[in-house]
Amino acid sequence: MLKELSKIKYYVVAALVALGVFMWAGLTGMRLMGDDNESVENQNSYYGNSGHSGGHGSRFYHK
């Protein structure tokens, strides 16, 4: 078995890494190919300083 796998060792390593990343992404809720978040100041945005840019004249509002 190992002899067989040694023929494709790079593929085996890549596949196992991919499986590990898949599991990590699943456990952390990470969508690997990007999500729909558009917030550019996402990391440190708080109430009131997150501007909204609705294309039809809506206003930012918060609780």
Partner: peptide
């Protein structure tokens, strides 16, 4: 058009998307 902001009420951190 539905611009939506997800607001963390403890940290104030926001996530936005529009559909």
């Amino acid at each position: 058009e539905l611009p939506i902001t997800l607001v963390n009420e403890q940290s104030g951190r926001v996530y936005e998307f529009t559909k």
